[in-house]
Structures are given as C-alpha cells and as structure tokens.
Design a protein around this nucleic acid. Sequence first.
DNA 1: TTGTATGCGTTATCAG
DNA 2: CTGATAACGCATACAA
Lengths: 329, 329
Amino acid sequence: MQKEKNAPTMADVAREAGVALGTVSRVVNGLQVGDEFKTKVEEAIQRLGYQYNSSGRILRTGNTNTIAFIIPNTINPYFALLVHHINIALEKRNCKMLLCFSEYDKNRETEYIQMARQNQVDGIIALTYNPDLTIPADVPFVTIDRFFSVSVPCVAADNFGGGYLAAKKLYELGCRHLGFMRTGSTVTNEPSKRKDGFVSACVEMGLPFEVIALEDGAPYTEFEKFLSDHMKNGKLAFDGLFLGTDMLAWMIVQTLKKMGLRVPEDVQVIGFDGIRSFGVLDLVVSTIVQPVQEIAEACVSTVLSKHLSNVPSLICLPVKYAYGGTTKE
Amino acid sequence: MQKEKNAPTMADVAREAGVALGTVSRVVNGLQVGDEFKTKVEEAIQRLGYQYNSSGRILRTGNTNTIAFIIPNTINPYFALLVHHINIALEKRNCKMLLCFSEYDKNRETEYIQMARQNQVDGIIALTYNPDLTIPADVPFVTIDRFFSVSVPCVAADNFGGGYLAAKKLYELGCRHLGFMRTGSTVTNEPSKRKDGFVSACVEMGLPFEVIALEDGAPYTEFEKFLSDHMKNGKLAFDGLFLGTDMLAWMIVQTLKKMGLRVPEDVQVIGFDGIRSFGVLDLVVSTIVQPVQEIAEACVSTVLSKHLSNVPSLICLPVKYAYGGTTKE
DNA sequence: TTGTATGCGTTATCAG
DNA sequence: CTGATAACGCATACAA
C-alpha cells in the first residue's frame, strides 16, 4: 500500500487545494475553518483519496488511543467472551485494542508488555497467571483475576461469593453431602477464593463436604479416581458437586454419566463462568455466571482513568446463579 | 506512560553514552558497531530504561509489520479458532495482528478497512459477508470463504468436497434417505458450495434427498417445522442429515432428541467446521473438519507475498471427516 | 567504524 | 481565520 505507491500526504492535499498545510490539518481534525477553504480542502481530499497517517499523528501527539489486552488465548470460550466485551467497552471510548496472546507463556507476556510500550499504548489490561511478572510503573496497568499489589488495580468477579452461593444453592436444591473439585494455577489468585466461599458456606450450614484441588496440568484421571473412590454400591458419596470452572463441570458430568450416574437426579452439578455452547446458545451446565460485561467495563474505565492513584485496588463484581440443566429446577 | 513522564529517546541514550545518535540507532537495530561503543550504548539503554518508539520507526521506514484481520467476532468458536491460527502464522513471520471485529456490520467493516490503511498495515485479511464491500486497490487483500474477483485472492476449505464427502459418508454408514439443512448469507459464497457437493453426491449415488436452505436470521422454528413435517408414525423420513455448520448440527441434534428420536441410532448427523467443546475437548458432533491451520497459513503467506499478481485467486484446502458421536462408528 | 544532518507526516505555536 | 515553521523519534545517506 503506502509503501509501494506512496500515498498522498497533507502536503499533497494542501498543494492540490491551493491552501497551507496547517489548514488541511485543521479540516481533518474538525477545527474552525472558513467554509470556502473547507470545501476546497475536502474536494482535494476526495480527488486524491487522502487518508491520514496515524504514525505521524502519534509521533507528534504521543496519543495512541490504544489499550493492550494480554490474554492466554481466544480458544477458551471465557477468554473469547472477555475479548469481545473489552473490545466493545474500548470502542465505546474511541479506543483501539492491541490484542496479545500469551499462550500461558511467561516470556511471551513480558515480550508483549515491552511491545505494548514500544507502541505507546495508553494502558495495559492483562489476565495472567505468571507469578513474578514485572509490572511497568510508567503505564497504567490493570489485571483481571489476579492481585499483584495495591498499586495495580485488579478486577474480578466475586469469587468468594460465587463459591458461597454455589454451596447454598446446592443445599437449597436438596443436596446434603457436597464436593468441590478444581484445577488451577499454583499462584494464589482470585479464582482460588471460589473454594474458600464454598467451604465457608458448608461450615456455616454444618454440611459435610470434601475438596480436591489439583495443580494445572495434573492428569484428569486423578479426578476420576477421586470420584470412583467415593462410590459405594453404585452410589456416589456426594449428591452435589461444585466445580472450579464450567469446563471442568462439563467434563465431570460426562464422567458421572459414564459411571452410570444420572445428572441431576443422582448428583447435581454447578460450574463457574457462565459458558454457553457456541457462545450464544444454552448454558453448558448450571453455573455461577461471571459478570463479563461489567468486568470489561471496569477494566477499561479503570485503565483509562486519569488518576490511577485514587482507584480501588480490588474491584469485585457480583455473580449470580443460573440454571443450565445439571441441577434440579 | 510516555505521555506523562516523557520517555527517554535515542538522543537521551546518545548523550548518556557519550556517542552519536546514529550509533545508538545502529546498536538498537543490530548493525555493525565497535564493541567498545556497543557496550557503552547498551549500558546507557539499561540505565535509562530506553524503549524504542515504534511510531518514529514506522514514520521513517513506512514498515509496520502489521496485518489487519477483520472478522465478525470472537464468540463464535470457529472464528476464535481462526483468530488463534492467524495470530500464530503471523507471529512466525514477525508480524503483529490488528484485530477488527465487524459484528457482521457493513459500516464497521468499511471503517475498519479505513482504519487499517491509516495505520499503514502491510495487508488485510477479511472474513466478511458484505456483498458490496469496496476493496482497496493499494493494499494486499485476502478474503476467507468469499470470492470477490480474480484480483482478490480467496482462501477457503474445499466446501464442495466437504458436502460431497458428507453425503458419501452417510451412505457408507447405512443411510438411504438424506436431508441437508443450512442457514446462510444471501450472498453466494464458498460455504454455499457445501450444498452443491452434497446434492452432487446424492444425485451420483441415486439417493433420494431433500434440501432446506434458509437465510441468516430466519427463525429456528422453520427447521423444526421442516422436521416435524417429515415425521410419519413416530419415524423421520430421513436417516441421515447433513448440516451447514456444527452449530446448526448441534441444535438439530437437541431438537431430534426432543422429538423422541435417537442419534445416531435413528438418524445420523454430520455437521461442518470441526468445533470442539471448550475449544479443546471432544468434537461436538460428527463433522467435516475445516483445515483451520492451513487456511490461516495460506492467508498469511498470500497476503505477505511480494507479488500478489502471480498468486492463485482461489486457494481451496482439503477437508476431512471426523467422528464426533452423532454417526455410527 | 562513527558522527552529522535530513526528512518521514503530523500537530501546534506563532505571526500575519 | 490562515500561512509558515518548528518539533516529535527514528533510520539512513553522506561526510569525516
């Protein structure tokens, strides 16, 4: 494009219209210009097919109106949803999104942060599990689901409340022996609190419960073993299960069915996230729904706020329960 | 960031290191520099925390190493997969991706094309259903699944072959009365050929078949009506169904089950795309798998090829059948 | 090999 | 209200 057949510049337009360079700039930026001049310039722009060059503008103003968003990938439906809503929230504010896929890779994350700074982004939003990520001090930085320090705002769903709600809901639906299963990063992060809320509710209600928490990468067979270890005479010890994510919940439902158990008749299952099949159809399982849109809004408005100093360091947004076929209703 | 506390520039580094501006540039770009000078510069860069400013470089060189990718959204799992692989293919070539979500909106598409040009991108890859999109002549442009003209390369799966394969496969698996259902854009595009391939195979095999093709946005109830119209004494007229996409296939499977039919015992179902639940688990339905990675590779290598003139105008990549639980196997 | 100087396209500050 | 001109940060052709 511009590289081959060098594109017309403001100088070209000025020459074509018979006005000064500055006047063209003023027309392009919608500043006060005499009607006569304005039309002359606009006609010249049409004739030449002029398009303004953003690098010139950025170089001069230092303003990119761009936010980098660092996320593992877009394959995971929850991440896809997040990307979607972050983009909408940014567009609303006339901002572009520089999307960076970390693929859960530590080095990629730091490279992308560097790249973002080279591109003069106005801020960075990141969802990362990297325990020792160095956060640049000179660019507004907001994280999702992961608390670094009070100087780095973190936006997250009310994970504790969600866990609490799941246990309460299972009880309401008739469950009397609960189980929690999850796989997660070794780093303590906000989603870890799902367990805490669950345990807290169980203790409060005086319900028996068990917990199995595996590290990311642990073989799924360990969950299967956990379940079969709790089978007696074709009956599972649990009548209600809460899973760390919808994905795990979905996998567990398959496993339970293979074991000859009926969901939700024999075991009720609640996941976490609020994933729908194909992104738009029914919920995959009964679940605690993350307020993705609100999370995105909070991230964007926080990262763009002029004074990061008087912004809360942890923004915790309410979740809710939704029926998705794996509970009685 | 750089906006607040203006970041160090090459001039600052040069001053700090006691060398000339050009020397710093040469060090940064990895050109031949005397060892002594080189270390002096590198130390200065460290001390100042210098990061090069990409707008300066772009303005000077005209080279962005960026490709714009225009796609409806990231919610649809197939699009998510595409984004994933396009990004990988670009990274491999040291290119960045400028991701643009059209949300199926005509105006957004043209705006994004304009934006891409303003950002001096080296090329554009687009998946669009806009019938009358104006394709800029001065920037390499590659489309996915949609043929515009011989001067605009189009990359697509072998949709005709996929439809043909689906019909053949259903026959092999014992089906003797086939049905095809799809919903799609009114614009004739590559995916439209899925039907043609299917019909072609049916005719060739002398199999009875029926086709229902609705426009995008048509209510799903029309498909339900189509199915119930073909029920006689609790039996469906079809024993094999081929659907335009995995999403539709999945929905139809739910509907069939609600109608009291067993899949695959009573009706076998094949979809198109190759979607996995949560992006990484099992296939959602038996399906014709799109070669997403190859499509992404083809798009990227085509859009980056220096001489677009001697590039094929339609790149058609082979598909394959995969079992996903909705066929007998 | 290193230093110097110019220009990429734009905005902003001055004069007129 | 408009015209001329100086930066912005960088790569590079040319001079030393």
